[in-house]
Design a protein around this nucleic acid. Structure first.
Lengths: 224, 224
DNA sequence: CTCGTTTTGTTCTCCCGTTCACAAACTCCT
DNA sequence: AGGAGTTTGTGAACGGGAGAACAAAACGAG
């Protein structure tokens, strides 16, 4: 079943992919502190995971450590960055410049990690004279030309829920193949398009569930 | 091993807990459309999951459906809301009123789902004269008194990374037992305190990884 | 050169979650 | 009343990830 792509077919488990950015950040922190070498134990502690899990995760990328010594911080950092793809620059479009869109446009963590916001779009004409984070807010009608011009493949949806699906469809039609969706809606997209969803109120509801259980049966919390 | 809490010990799997809010939202949507009854197939399609998984998830709560008929939308909605705990009101404190804090304070999805923002705190005195979403931005020094006054158990951290850990420790000391962390930092907290992390740039990096793989070997995307 | 120490990379086992498949149960029609 | 058609709830197989444990490899001391 896995014999479609014979070489370079390192199919890294999804759970590992989700942790690689965490390791990347931990390594950046170590590098800034002047650390040049670290053991899996140290790095795992910094990243907040088990050291065995960390070593297994890294082993999917290759053998970048030295037994008896550890990992070279800068070297490993580059290898992970290359594997994720953040050594190159990813142009990003943000649609929906409300409160959340503002925050995302101004978020410095994107730029510093290889993501460049190339355009801010909003369907509301009254927002089009605004300048946010040094960029003009432009009409949603400009989506296609912007995507074509900057070769954008990643789009961020920060619109109200009702608008999200129409925005997603038009993004896909324009050639975008990865969507980060902040609207509380289920998006159905064609195969080949990836969607990740961030839902703020769902996170709070999960916390509320556990909080409620703490109140009912205190002490049965730290079992797992 | 499971015989610690004899009754009411419905230990709902974590994966199921994370989906219950999704079902809740789907049911609310159906109810607004005037639907009074739905099958697991319909609800699953609305929520974007497999129908067998939906039925198994719901079975952890009890038998709230009718064979041959389906589920009563309003009844099931109430049961899930009660299980999660969103039938009651949860007071919430937000610390760090920058761009993201603004967006969170104004987010209407919290209020409509049983969460009430009772205070906005920031360490920067120059922000203390601001009014955001109808609330005064107050000093972080007021944390303890606010938590005590409103019986707050949920805190949201929207500060820069460097401040996050100190904020978390003080929250825990003040009596908060659930934290939603937007800062890109690993928080270590005592047992009994739940932390959920939302990291915007990590989500984008995961998308970038898949995007990069699409470019290298197109077609090996829709395997899984 | 050899031996002991350290740390990685990997194997093995266990557990959680997903999915299939089917029996139980309910409704509707004749 | 009885049978056909639906839909839930659940038992069982399956796959993937987490963690423990260990062998392989590198370094340093004597």
């Amino acid at each position: 079943m896995t014999a479609r792509t014979p070489d370079s077919a390192r199919d890294i488990p999804e759970a590992t992919v989700a942790r690689l950015p965490v390791y990347l950040r931990a390594l950046t922190g170590l590098a800034e502190d002047g650390t040049t070498t670290c053991s899996s134990e140290e790095l795992a502690a910094t990243a907040g995971v088990n050291s065995a899990k960390l070593r297994k995760d890294l082993s999917y990328l290759g053998s970048y450590g030295t037994r008896g010594v550890g990992y070279d911080v800068e070297y490993l950092r580059y290898q992970i960055a290359r594997e994720i793809g953040v050594t190159q620059d990813w142009p990003v479009v943000i649609v929906g410049i409300g409160n959340l869109g503002h925050a995302l446009a101004n978020y410095s963590g994107f730029r510093s990690r290889g993501f460049r916001v190339v355009a801010l779009l909003d369907a509301d004409p009254s927002r089009h004279d605004e300048v946010v984070a040094g960029l003009d807010v432009r009409s949603f009608e400009d989506l296609e030309s912007i995507v074509a011009e900057h070769d954008v493949s990643i789009g961020v949806i920060a619109t109200p829920a009702v608008a999200a699906h129409a925005v997603a469809e038009r993004m896909v039609a324009a050639g975008i193949t990865s969507i980060l969706n902040f609207a509380p809606t289920v998006l159905s997209v064609p195969d080949g398009v990836d969607v990740r969803k961030v839902d703020l109120s769902i996170e709070l509801q999960i916390l509320a569930y556990h909080e409620q259980r703490k109140a009912v049966s205190p002490g049965s919390e730290d079992v797992s």
